[in-house]
Simulated assay, not measured.
Amino acid sequence: MTIYKSAAGAQLLRERYLDALRAWPVPHDEVRVPTPEGETFVLASGPAEAPPLVLLHGSGSNSAEWVPRIPSLAERFRVYAVDIIGEPGMSAETRPPLDSDRYARWLEAVLDHFGVAGAAFLTSSLGGWLALDFAIRRPGRVTALALRCPIGLGPMKKGFVVKAVLLALLGEKGRRKSVAGTIGAPETSPVVEHQLLVSANYRYRTGPFPVFGDAALGRLTMPVYAVAGAEDAMVDSATTKRRLEAAGAAVDLVPGTGHLIPGEADLEFLTRVASNGDFTA
């Protein structure tokens, strides 16, 4: 089954993405990488000799999510913004089983294509789950993790699903309220408008994401920093903080903030790690 609700919806989201790519704020290469899971679309920006940094976006999104941050990131790093497979970007629609090593083999193929032995990862939500899975399975390929509202650490809150279903019964107004509450943004926000468009045309992944056990988190040997919203409607951020700190990570909870995290606190972490020589190409 296609990940889109209709061919017209797929075309609409693709056109929106192409518009965003035309606004990519720095010189870049658009690369289509062959992988075991199908073609993967990657935008490469920044000096070729700079430390490598892989960007993994959130669910229902694509690399356009990073447009506001690319100028500051590309000053310091060779940035590889990867469209996650099975998401509404320009990569293959493949969705391997989450309890397999196929996502790890997919990311490994992407790094191999660019000749990157090890890279730091900057991620959002779903991208954090994928980066953690990769770091646990391939610790030698990950030099640092910067995680924004990661999933797979604390339990997903059941209440937000029930609330979303009830609000959906109220039509457009209810759906807008649901999306705004889920991501923690005003109902009139452009982010909410975009997510409403996506949800009208795209089939989100269903089923819970596997939660990483303590033994698995113990295999994270690289520097790890995470930031999460204290008022996240989807994820138990307090548990995320507790479990990551037990594994040696540094974690900030942002008060009064939901799943959409403002600011660039992770940039300071990544720059510090790079300046200490803890990650290289």
Rank of each mutant, 00 (worst) to 15 (best):
G154Q: 07
G258I: 05
P68Y: 12
S63A: 14
P51Y: 03
S199T: 10
E65A: 13
D252T: 14
M1Y: 00
E187R: 14
P208C: 08
L53P: 03
L260E: 15
V165Y: 10
L56S: 09
A247Y: 02
G46E: 03
F77I: 05
A48R: 06
R242M: 12
F160R: 12
W24C: 03
S59I: 08
V67G: 10
A117D: 11
G184F: 00
G181A: 05
V161K: 11
Y225N: 02
L170K: 12
V54H: 03
A23N: 13
P51A: 01
A185C: 09
V110W: 06
L217A: 12
V142E: 02
G256Q: 06
E87S: 07
P71R: 03
L21K: 00
I261E: 00
L43H: 01
A131N: 07
T143M: 12
G258Y: 07
L126Y: 11
P96Y: 08
A8P: 01
E264F: 12
I85K: 00
A10M: 09
G127F: 10
V251P: 06
S275Y: 13
S61P: 00
A216C: 07
P186Q: 08
L132N: 06
T40W: 03
P25I: 07
L73G: 01
A74S: 13
V235H: 06
A216L: 09
R148Q: 14
L166T: 14
V54M: 08
E15N: 12
F121D: 05
H28W: 04
S72N: 15
G38P: 06
G128T: 08
I136V: 06
A249Y: 05
E268P: 04
L13G: 02
R16G: 12
S124C: 14
A185I: 04
D29I: 01
V165S: 04
L132S: 05
A200H: 04
V251I: 09
K177W: 10
Y103N: 05
T257I: 07
L56A: 12
K158E: 14
E93R: 04
G152T: 01
T123E: 03
S275N: 15
K177L: 14
L147Q: 02
R22W: 11
G152E: 02
F41W: 13
A48F: 01
L12N: 10
E187F: 11
I261F: 01
E49W: 00
K163P: 00
L122R: 13
A7P: 11
S124E: 15
G154E: 09
L145W: 02
I183C: 12
E172W: 10
G118F: 01
L13M: 07
P51Q: 03
S59D: 11
E49M: 03
S72K: 15
S72Q: 15
P223G: 03
A230K: 14
A185L: 14
E231A: 12
L107S: 01
P51R: 03
A230H: 13
I84A: 09
A20Q: 15
Y225G: 00
A281E: 05
S61D: 10
Q195V: 14
M1Q: 09
G89D: 02
F77P: 00
A164M: 14
H28S: 07
S237G: 08
I183D: 09
V191R: 13
T257C: 09
H259N: 00
L132Q: 09
A10N: 06
R105P: 08
